[in-house]
Nucleic acid binder design. Structure first.
Lengths: 341, 341
DNA sequence: CTGAAAGCGCTTACAG
DNA sequence: CTGAAAGCGCTTACAG
């Protein structure tokens, strides 16, 4: 059973494709097509269950109504939830999402962007991996609509939607200090990404401002490709130190935080009695952990909504580009029992 | 800067589009095109950074190299991880993924399927919501390639890839019985979906086989749209019962399980001393929960890999359909401290 | 009020 | 060894 095309309808009715197209696209009025003909076309279209071929339409109009979403990993709850928000917002404007997980590899994201640039999408929402600057610059050069999300490159002028990581980290550390914790560690990953760097800077600044000397002392930077062993080694080394064990730890991602909690539990240490814990992101795990874990929750809904809005604004105004949007949202600190000093 | 097309290359070289297309598609040999011409074409294509327009190609060949993935919610870690596996496997064969979250609504999935059927995808991988039988039947009728995943409709002959939910549930319940638990409850959701029904049946059968009378007594079925309050009410009502409180609970999904754990913790009950817990799925949360939660892990990688393989087999053999594949995979029970009697 | 024609960028019989 | 032509299913100036 072949799908019905415009031509099928036109032929059966003995009219031109033009007319059918016009009617079905709601342009009957402005072309003053008779009510009678309109009705015939619409009725037959319904009867034959006509669905315009979007590929053909796309080829002709140069629009796909599809957004390319490049993120680190759709299986990571942070990106999963972000993807969901983006999907929801995009659907409101008739857009679809093709997603690609880059695994934080610049090589992967390059392949993925190039693939989707072959006429498959109208624009991109990208969470760019470290080292992908040239890809972003090339998007700029080719005037491909795109918006960065979660992170950006300070050296490249881009539209982006991110959170204030520095402030989030600063305030979380301050919270710990105010709760009376003295020896606050930070476990992070070695990413040359502005979001990760800001998280560390905020932590250090808070310690500095509080007069803590040598704020790097309890900072642990894991290899970029951090496996469970890396996290366990770092956390063990910190908490089992005889003289200088921290009384609190800030994890800069939930992936690290979750593994860190596993490690702390495996050592049978008590939270927060032996060591308090606070982490970026707020996965389910933190709510049901015993005790529940204090979290720096990101505004996922807002991140998704805004990035779609910014992107569609660019797509819909390609000739006269809207002014650059650099949107920084606030995080939400959720105090739970893991930091009750 | 307009993108270069086949025509651009052909004109600059003074040859036909045919020739350029042939060369670039690696059909030079079989058409015995001279080495010399080949090289010229390939070099210029590289120089102009030529990328074939996939939309045009798709219109001509009727292939999109895109799979439509309809799931309940990409933000749900189960589907997020499944999506990731599907993406990975599909990419190996040059396929892309457009995903749609149906929110378990048959109305949504219908809209989404119809949208993608407008020439946008070569086939579907679908986790069908309750009540979407007619949609699946219509896919059958139009001979659209598709494969169901996670669940299927017994009354409709389909290709599907699922797990043995009955057996998984039966064995988990048996495990609890063998551990000495006597009063095993089950908290599930009211879904008319075979996967959910099988989980309940397996539970009841195990109780029956063990000679437990009235195996429905500790079964709690939550409303389909189960909110946190619903779960809390059900769990509280169970565990706070003065005479008949269960000594173990089986949760049939991680969404319910996570909320159930929150509730148990909020009541300050001890796991497993007051009540043991086992749950379907194995999100991060269960590993870092204190104590860690025994889980019925699904083979996500296998589910993803197999569903892509089955689908591509159908897509690549449209004229003579391969025999129907009904694949049932085994789950993996992970015993953790939450069930140490 | 309506239609013939061009064209989006490809691929592929067909012809020589 | 290579090219002219048709056609995938649409939209849209242009003409009347």
């Amino acid at each position: 059973m072949k799908k019905t095309s415009l031509n099928d309808i036109a032929q059966q009715l003995g009219v031109s494709k033009t007319l059918v197209s016009l009617v079905l696209n709601g342009k009957a009025r402005e072309h003053r097509i008779s009510e009678e003909v309109c009705k015939k076309v619409i009725d037959l279209a319904k009867e034959l269950n006509y669905k315009p071929n979007q590929i053909a339409k796309g080829l002709r109009t140069g629009k796909t109504n599809t957004i390319g979403l490049i993120i680190a990993d759709i299986a990571n709850p942070f990106f999963g939830k972000l993807g969901r928000e983006i999907e929801r917002e995009a659907a409101m404007y008739g857009y679809r999402i093709i997603f690609c997980s880059s695994d934080e590899s610049a090589e992967n994201s390059e392949t993925q962007i190039e693939m989707l640039q072959q006429g498959l999408v109208d624009g991109f929402i990208i969470s760019p991996p470290a080292g992908s600057q040239s890809q972003i610059q090339s998007l700029e050069k080719s005037k491909t609509p795109y918006v960065l999300v979660d992170r950006y490159f300070p050296e490249i002028k881009s539209n982006f939607v991110v959170v204030d990581n520095f402030k989030a980290s600063y305030e979380a550390t301050l919270y710990l200090l105010n709760k009376g914790f003295k020896r606050i560690a930070c476990v992070t990953i070695s990413a040359r990404l502005v979001n990760m760097l800001d998280r560390v800077e905020g932590y250090k600044k808070a310690l500095n401002d509080a007069g803590v000397e040598n704020p790097d002392k309890l900072l642990r930077i894991l290899p970029f490709s951090h496996e469970k062993d890396d996290v366990f080694d770092a956390v063990k080394q910190l908490v089992l130190d005889e003289n200088e064990a921290p009384d609190a730890i800030l994890f800069t991602t939930s992936k690290v935080g979750i593994m860190g909690l596993e490690c702390i539990h495996s050592l049978e240490l008590k939270i927060p009695e032996n060591v308090a814990v606070v982490s970026f992101d707020d996965p389910d795990a933190y709510r049901i952990s015993q005790p529940p874990v204090s979290a720096i929750a990101q505004p996922l809904k807002e991140l998704g909504t805004q990035s779609v809005k910014v992107l569609l604004d660019i797509i819909n105004n390609r000739e006269n580009r809207p002014p650059r949007k650099e949107i920084t949202l606030k995080t939400n600190f959720i105090a739970r029992k893991s930091t009750e000093g």
